[in-house]
Amino acid sequence: MVRLKLIFIIFLIDIGLYYSYVNWSNLSKIKAKVFKILNIKSDFLNEIGDISRFSARFFREVIKPKQEWEEFINQCFWVGYKTLTLVGITAFIMGLVLTIQSRPTLVEFGAEAMLPAMVAVSLVREISPVITALICAGKIGSGMGAELGSMRVTEQIDAMEVSGTNPFKYLIVTRVLATTIMVPVLASVANAVSLYGGYLGANLRGDVSWSLYWFQVFDSLSFGDVVPSLIKTFFFGFAIGIVGCYKGFYSKKGTEGVGRSATTAVIVASLLVFIIDLLVVQVTDILGLT
C-alpha cells in the first residue's frame, strides 16, 4: 500500500514536471533517488507525459483556424463506414449469445420475464460500448499506428512538412476527431443491433412478441443508462485516436518500429478503454446515475 502511494506521488510529480517550465532539478534528483529505491523505471511515466503533451498539442491545433475538413470527412468514412460491418456482426452475436446464456439462470429464479430488461441494461450500459471500443482499438488503433508509422519511416510526414502543410493538423487532428465522433456513432449502432440479436435469442427458446420485447427494453432503460454510456464512448474514441496517432507519429525508424507501433497502439488503447470505463462507472455512481 505504501509502495502504491509512493508511485502515485511520483506520478503526480512527473505530471507536474512536464507541465512546468520551472527548473525542478532538485525535485528531479529526489525523484530519481526514489525511483532507484523503488527500482521503478521511469519509461512508463515518461510515456504518460509524452502522450499528455501530444494531447495538449491536439487541443491547441484543433482550435487554430483552417481545419482539414476534406481529410476529416475521409477519415470519418474510414473509421465509421469501414468498421460498421465488423461492429454490426459482433454486436448482433453479442446480443444473441448474452440472451441465450442468461436465460437458464433467470428461468431458475422464475424471472424469465425480466430477460429483455436485463439484456437491454447490460448491453446498453456496458457491453456494447466497451466491445465496440475494443474492436475499434484493434482495427482503427492498429491501422493508425501502422499507417502513420509507415509514413514516418518513409519520410512522407517530413515531405508534408516541407511542402508547407502542418502534418499534425492534417494527419492527427483529423484522425482523432474522426474517432472521437465515429466511435459513439458505432456504439449507438452496436446498441441497436445487439438488441435485435437479443430479440432473436429470446425467441430461440421462448416466445416473446416483437412489441412486448421492445416495450420491456425501453421501459427498463433510463436517462442514467443511456447518456453516461454514450458520453464514455466519446472518451473511448478520443483515447483510441490519440494513442494510435501518437504511436504512429513517433514511430522509430524501420519496419520493426512500425510493427511495434501498431501492436502497442492496440495494447495501450485497449487498456485505456478499461481504465476510462472504470472511471466513468465511478463518476456515474457518485452522481447517483446508476
Partner: peptide, 15 residues
C-alpha cells in the same frame, strides 16, 4: 519552404 524543393532519398511519395 515554397521556394525550397526537397527530393527525399526514399522519394516520400504519398502512397
Amino acid at each position: 519552404r515554397a521556394d525550397i524543393g526537397f527530393l527525399f532519398q526514399s522519394n516520400a511519395l504519398y502512397d
